[in-house]
Computed example of a mutant assay.
Amino acid sequence: MYIKRKLEKLVSMALEQFPVCLITGARQAGKSTMLKNLLKNYRYVSFDDPKARQMAIEDPKLFLLTNPPPVIIDEIQYAPEILSYIKMDVDANRRDYGRYVLTGSQIFQVMQGVTESLAGRVAIFNLYPLSFEEIDIDVFDDKLVFQSYLKGFYPEFYVNLKLDMSFWFSSYLATYIERDVRNITAVSDLSKFQTFINILATRAGQILNLSNISKECAISQPTCKSWLSILESTYIIYLLRPFHNNRKKRLIKSPKLYFVDTGLLCYLLGIDNTNRLLKASERGAIFENMIIMETIKRLSYQVGKTNCYFYRTGAGVEIDLIVEKTKTIPYEIKFTKTLSKNMARSINLFSKDHDIEKGYVLSLSGDDIFLYRNVLAMHWSKVLKGQE
């Protein structure tokens, strides 16, 4: 069973305008499956295949002759040497669009080669695990919603309904650490890296404190920064930057930490059923994590640039999510069915210093209620379709 992806439309558009298209995203997010279903007339080759990888590294011209366009090349990060030869082929056929479709699950390594070799010739997209819109469940059925973000959004769970969550995530992490982490950098103590990931899970939805994390994990701050970069570049975590009027400050202040997939987050926290989820002290943070990532997914599948931030002042005014596109929209996220005016206080204070039309409180409540003149409380699912 194939689940149609929201990104397909943008990829199809890009293939009519660019000679190369690059899809990045986490392992098992569905990149290869999407492309094989969308581009059935394309040749497919993966650098997970040692023979294909060896040929691309040792004799890139022969590799391209053996695998002529249109072609999908999977896991391009394992043989970045091929990119300069793809550039030469593209430049020789500049108006022949959709020649190469590349995928990569380690963005730092991929992007270095792409920016050096294919600037101006490539359209780049991120494919995240499935969204609520793609799995198509009743988002007003709280039980179904909790079950969905408990097991997460990797496509395999929705294709193989008998899959055991604990077994799958255990295998996923083991493979990820052995393959991707070792490939990116020399981590001398893989068990300590696993401990690092577990510690980060307890910090989901919180502002990163590198000093505390490095002390708890008994590693240096430079190592902590390096390991965070690995997790971000391989789409295990997502770092939400802070909002400031002074744009330079966005790069200086500490970000908030989220996990790209709530199923992996719940697994790391030892939450394996909905009863534990509802009793867990982290239930609000997991709900916030889910909505942040659902928003990121939705916006990433749209044309045009959109920026997402969180907001926090020294006085303690904090807003979970601010979306900037043609206008600035603040969101507060509350794991509750009972609304109160106090939930909108931060947005109301924010509106006094910033030009906004309206802000929103997202919760489990199905009622649309104005908590302030310019702050509307609504069901969290409305953000999935951009119904603000």
Rank of each mutant, 00 (worst) to 15 (best):
N126E: 15
N126P: 03
N126W: 08
Y128V: 03
Y128A: 00
Y128S: 04
Y128W: 14
P129L: 03
P129W: 02
P129T: 05
L130F: 11
L130M: 14
L130E: 08
S131T: 10
S131C: 03
S131K: 06
S131H: 08
S131Y: 05
F132H: 02
F132M: 15
F132R: 06
E133F: 01
E133Q: 10
E134W: 08
E134T: 06
E134H: 07
E134L: 07
E134V: 09
E134P: 02
I135M: 02
I135F: 06
I135P: 02
I135G: 03
I135E: 08
D136K: 15
D138N: 15
V139Q: 04
F140A: 11
F140Y: 12
F140T: 15
D141P: 08
D141C: 12
D142V: 15
D142A: 13
D142I: 15
D142K: 14
K143N: 10
K143T: 14
L144E: 11
V145P: 06
F146Q: 11
F146W: 14
F146L: 13
F146N: 11
F146H: 13
F146S: 01
Q147E: 15
Q147G: 04
Q147L: 09
Q147A: 11
S148T: 15
S148Q: 09
Y149H: 11
Y149F: 15
Y149N: 09
Y149Q: 08
L150F: 02
L150I: 05
L150D: 02
K151F: 02
K151P: 10
K151V: 07
K151G: 05
F153H: 01
Y154G: 02
Y154V: 05
Y154P: 01
P155N: 10
P155Q: 09
E156H: 05
E156N: 09
F157S: 05
F157D: 01
F157Y: 06
Y158T: 07
N160W: 00
K162Y: 00
K162W: 00
K162S: 08
L163A: 03
D164M: 07
D164R: 06
M165F: 00
M165A: 10
M165K: 13
M165V: 06
S166K: 15
S166Q: 13
S166I: 12
S166Y: 11
F167D: 09
W168G: 04
F169A: 07
S170V: 02
S170E: 13
S171R: 13
S171Y: 03
S171N: 14
S171Q: 12
Y172C: 04
Y172R: 13
L173M: 13
L173G: 06
L173V: 11
L173S: 04
L173P: 10
A174Q: 13
A174V: 03
T175N: 12
Y176F: 14
Y176C: 11
I177R: 09
I177H: 06
E178N: 10
E178Q: 14
E178L: 02
E178V: 01
R179W: 06
R179M: 07
